[in-house]
């Protein structure tokens, strides 16, 4: 009886959250999935007027810009997961153990871009990277960084890293503060040098924090849109398109294809990518836990 009361009460308390989750996540998500099988321009009131089967998926499969967007998305995710996390780890260890005078100020400066709107960050960096921008003025060059097919994605990754590295750093810093310092003191007594301490004690102890940072960056990476849109609008000629900007191009872009059904198909691909990685992570985590 007690169990039953608890059960109903629990459900009752969960209702608002379930309602919000269903309204803003599950229902739009399922609608989007269904929409990917329809020819919908975005203007019709009847979203499901013309069923086209898997035509929208075939369309993106045959579009070379989809593959460019997919490749760029994985490149962006790679940058966010490995480069951004890696630099944040190094910086956090350096600042935490460095014990230098202005470490709080340095941390604040590194964290500062996180509080800025990505659109503002994009606009500032656009001014820096433009052909007549700050960088070329300093270097005395006339190079178009954002119109370089080979360079543009790396620049977007750099700007994204610059903005969000402070966020990872703060999480690492919290991890370092909660670390059992006695282990390091013991290693001192055992005569361990700094390299041994970092690679054999600090990094292994920070592993859960690293996983957390990587997952946050991975999810953020797949959802990247604003920084790409503001810096390049997916250009030049779609060569810096990521999946989210490619979705936008198909759905809303002025003078674009006006195919929201195709956009929904792209959204499904993004969902599938994140789901696959999330499931893989759970399986691997379970396996590691079992082995330990």
């Amino acid at each position: 009886m007690i169990y039953k009361t608890f059960h109903i009460k629990t459900l009752f308390y969960l209702l608002p959250a379930v309602f919000i989750f269903l309204t803003f996540n599950v229902i739009p998500g399922l609608t989007s999935l269904v929409l990917s099988f329809f020819d919908f321009s975005g203007f019709e009131t009847n979203l499901f007027r013309k069923f086209v089967g898997i035509d929208n998926f075939i369309k993106i499969y045959e579009d070379k810009y989809f593959w460019i967007a997919l490749k760029n998305t994985f490149l962006f995710v790679f940058g966010a997961v490995f480069i951004q996390t890696g630099i944040a780890l190094v910086l956090s260890i350096f600042i935490f153990f460095g014990n230098f005078k202005f470490s709080v100020l340095v941390r604040s400066i590194i964290f500062f871009p996180c509080v800025l709107a990505p659109v503002s960050v994009g606009l500032v960096w656009k001014k820096i990277l433009e052909q007549d921008g700050v960088l070329n003025s300093i270097l005395g060059l006339d190079y178009s960084y954002l119109s370089s097919v080979s360079l543009v994605m790396w620049l977007i990754i750099m700007v994204n890293t610059w903005q969000w590295i402070g966020y990872n750093l703060v999480i690492y810093y919290a991890g370092l503060q909660s670390m059992n310092i006695e282990l390091l003191e013991a290693s001192d007594i055992d005569g361990a040098n700094w390299s041994q301490k970092i690679f054999s004690i600090i990094i292994p102890l920070l592993w859960p924090t690293t996983i957390l940072n990587m997952i946050l960056n991975l999810i953020g990476g797949f959802r990247a849109f604003d920084i790409v849109y503001v810096l390049t609008r997916g250009g030049p000629a779609h060569y810096s398109e990521v999946l989210a900007s490619y979705l936008y191009y198909y759905s809303f872009s002025a003078g674009g294809p006006n195919k929201m059904g195709v956009g929904a198909a792209v959204a499904f691909v993004i969902f599938a990518c994140i789901l696959t990685i999330a499931v893989a992570r759970i399986i691997i985590s379970k396996k590691i836990r079992r082995e330990n």
């Binding site: 975005g42 203007f43 009131t45 006006n258």
Partner: peptide, 13 residues
């Protein structure tokens, strides 16, 4: 021009 459809499409549909 660039942002118009972001408004118009959801509004009309």
């Amino acid at each position: 021009v660039s942002t118009y459809n972001e408004f118009l499409k959801p509004a009309l549909s």
